[in-house]
Amino acid sequence: MESNYHTLKRVDNQLIVITHLSQMLSYITGFGGLLVPLILWLTQKDKIEGMDEHGKSIVNFQLSMIIYAIICVPLIFLIGLGILGLIIIGIISFVFPIINAIKASNGEMPSYPLSIRFIQ
């Protein structure tokens, strides 16, 4: 029975890792980085331990990055500050899902910078 628990726990961590990495779909489709984690979180939050916290963090992070990108667009006309902001957002949006996927595989909670808590 104990081996089944560890197998089940590992599978759960793998789905949480996939949820974090699914944010990378934004670089391919432009919008999948919000939709896929949102769907995974909403369908699995009651079935998988830890998915609710991870899902909330991911959705809050993605919504925050979208808002920051929208703010950067008019700032492009102010000495190119918006371009710098978009580059920084792009780097943060690429690096932190990978970092948090690694944390999730180790059973740790995620931490996303500059994340506005829309969903508590």
Rank of each mutant, 00 (worst) to 15 (best):
N106D: 09
Y112Q: 03
M24A: 12
Q23L: 04
M65H: 01
Y27R: 07
S105Q: 13
I66R: 00
S93H: 08
I28S: 01
I18L: 12
V17E: 02
R10V: 02
Q44H: 13
Q120Y: 11
T29R: 08
L114G: 01
N13Q: 15
I58L: 06
I48H: 04
I102Q: 00
Q120S: 14
L25A: 07
G82Q: 12
P37Y: 07
T19Q: 06
G80H: 13
G80W: 09
F118Q: 13
F94N: 03
I102F: 07
P113E: 12
P74H: 03
M51H: 12
G55E: 10
I88R: 09
I39V: 15
L84K: 11
V11D: 02
L40A: 10
L63R: 04
R117N: 14
I98T: 03
G90C: 03
F118K: 09
M51Q: 14
G30R: 08
S22I: 00
L75S: 01
I83Q: 12
E53Y: 12
I88Q: 05
K56N: 09
I91D: 08
I91E: 10
G55D: 06
L86K: 09
S64K: 01
K47Y: 05
N4D: 15
F31C: 01
D52V: 04
S22K: 01
L25M: 13
P37I: 05
V73I: 15
K9V: 07
L40R: 03
L75G: 01
T7P: 00
S3W: 08
I87A: 12
E108N: 11
N100Q: 08
T7I: 13
T19L: 10
I92H: 01
G32Q: 06
L81E: 08
P110E: 11
I39P: 00
V36K: 07
L25K: 11
Y5L: 15
F61P: 05
T7V: 12
A101F: 11
E53P: 03
S3D: 14
V73D: 09
I66E: 02
L21R: 10
Y27V: 08
F61L: 02
G33T: 05
I48N: 00
